[in-house]
């Protein structure tokens, strides 16, 4: 059994709205799999289905070889989950929550727990109600990473972390991969998935629209580059992989695929390069270009139905 997660044709409806509409997703053992999609595309719904918290309306699903709905507890013994919006008991301290979750999970590595507290710089004696979103996320991350799970499901785990802690988190994910663990990492930031993933699947409106090694998906992404040059060179738009050339005085802006980067650099360097800025490709642009719709396309994206209490 090579696949830790297998979903095919999964449908999940909320009322008449199909949040997942025939979703296919496979995660192989030992890989870090990026699960990319804009807000409201169905990432969280997919993860909750894989955890048996939601019941699917169709399709088939295996997690660690088991049915996540029927054998939820058995599946969970081997996996760790960090929700996208971590909500903790306001009256418990971070340390209490970490230990409690460890105990509920059936075991936790104390040394690793303490090391992680250090790495993420979290005060375990503070009450959870005083934690920021980032700190709540750290609590869930530490609780998850301190377990001995086979499979880690992380739902936008860095959305509240500062850049320093984000790097620490990336280091932890690399460590997991080196240990042979499997990670499913959802994100709406292309560069994040790029930095960590062996493979990515891109979800849009409840369907996976692309899936593969990053190198295979490279052709989808374009870097945008702006350069100030002494003399604007001719024929930039004839370089393969260079698009949308805009010239304003001595300033050139282009969109470039990975294949066009080297020739473009040669051309602008020859033209007397004075300054250069580049922006990594974003998911939004990719969606706009390949699927003809802005990323925020699904109805009421990101807004959960709220309830009066």
């Amino acid at each position: 059994m090579d696949n830790v997660l297998e979903m095919s044709g999964v449908v999940k409806r909320f009322g008449s709205f199909a949040a997942l509409d025939g979703l296919d997703l496979t995660v192989a053992r030992g890989e870090v799999h990026g699960f990319l999609g804009p807000n409201g595309s169905g990432k969280t719904t997919t993860l909750r289905l894989a955890l048996g918290m939601l019941r699917s309306n169709g399709g088939s699903m295996r997690v660690l070889g088991l049915d996540p709905w029927r054998d939820a507890a058995k599946v969970h013994r081997q996996l760790a989950y960090v929700p996208g919006d971590v909500s903790l008991w306001p009256n418990l301290t971070g340390g209490q929550v970490i230990d409690l979750l460890g105990r509920l999970q059936g075991g936790q590595d104390r040394t690793r727990r303490d090391a992680l507290l250090e790495i993420f710089d979290l005060d375990p004696t503070k009450k959870a109600r005083s934690y920021s979103k980032g700190n709540r996320q750290k609590v869930a991350l530490i609780a998850a990473l301190a377990t001995d799970a086979e499979f880690f499901l992380l739902d936008e785990p860095t959305s509240g972390l500062d850049p320093l802690k984000e790097e620490a988190f990336r280091e932890c994910v690399r460590q997991l991969r080196d240990d042979g663990r499997t990670v499913l990492l959802s994100s709406h930031i292309l560069s994040e998935a790029e930095a960590l993933s062996d493979r990515v699947s891109i979800i849009r409106d409840g369907k996976v629209v692309e899936s593969g090694r990053l190198s295979e998906l490279r052709h989808l992404t374009r870097t945008s580059i702006t350069a100030d040059v002494t003399t604007v060179p001719d024929g930039l738009d004839r370089i393969p992989g260079v698009h949308d050339v805009v010239v304003q005085g001595n300033r050139v802006s282009v969109q470039v695929e990975p294949v066009g980067l080297a020739p473009l650099m040669e051309a602008v360097t020859a033209a007397g390069l004075e300054s250069l800025t580049s922006q990594p490709p974003t998911l939004e642009e990719l969606f706009l270009r390949h699927y003809g719709a802005p990323a925020e396309s699904s109805p009421d994206a990101g807004s959960q139905p709220s309830e009066g209490r």
């Binding site: 909750r48 955890l51 918290m53 939820a72 507890a73 969970h76 929700p83 909500s87 979750l101 509920l104």
Partner: peptide, 19 residues
């Protein structure tokens, strides 16, 4: 209900605790 609505139940059920 308050635990479920607050999202705490999601955290607990992701462990090996059964419903």
């Amino acid at each position: 209900r308050s635990e479920e609505a607050a999202g705490h139940t999601e955290v607990v059920l992701a462990t090996s605790t059964t419903r």
